[in-house]
């Protein structure tokens, strides 16, 4: 059985992406779009939805496994915030994965790490995928 390849995936997140995700998910917490409210909450700036970061990590899993229907489980811990500047460049997130031996159920465990620069923003992230 061929091992699942998990080439690192890099995704850029801009303010426009936060607005798009807010609308798609229904999460309109203003810390994800308002500098004023983010500052009032003591945050270093407008931050990305944790669930957007998880959603991008799931996109990487879908890419590696050969489809979103192959991601059977996915659990993450939100370890630090992703600050998204109000510019056109946005911020880059790098998703990497480490594959372990399949279990008796045939599912392949994948440890996922998401980094923003040097900072790990998703920790203890483990998925189980059905290999193609």
């Amino acid at each position: 059985m061929s091992a699942l390849a998990t080439p690192p995936q890099t995704y850029t997140v801009t303010r426009a992406d936060l607005v798009r995700y807010a609308g798609a998910s229904g999460d309109f917490n203003p810390i994800h779009y308002s500098d004023r409210i983010a500052a009032a909450m003591g945050l270093p700036g407008v931050i990305a939805h944790g669930m957007l970061t998880m959603g991008l990590a799931a996109r990487a899993l879908s890419t590696w496994a050969g489809g979103p229907d192959r991601v059977v489980s996915f659990t993450v811990r939100f370890t630090s915030m992703v600050v998204v500047p109000d510019d056109d460049a946005g911020v880059a997130l790098e998703v990497s994965g480490e594959v372990a031996e399949p279990g008796e159920d045939g599912l392949v465990p994948v440890s996922v790490t998401v980094r923003c620069g040097e900072q790990v923003v998703l920790g203890r992230a483990v998925a189980h995928v059905r290999a193609a």
């Binding site: 798009r20 609308g23 798609a24 957007l52 799931a58 996109r59 979103p68 229907d69």
Partner: peptide, 25 residues
């Protein structure tokens, strides 16, 4: 809503966007 959510996370798999592709799968 599925297409909108897929666009928001950049998921381009055809089974999220194209009904025929989803049924074929």
């Amino acid at each position: 809503k599925i297409r909108e959510f897929a666009d928001a996370v950049g998921e381009t798999s055809p089974i999220c966007h194209d009904v025929d592709a989803a049924r074929a799968a």
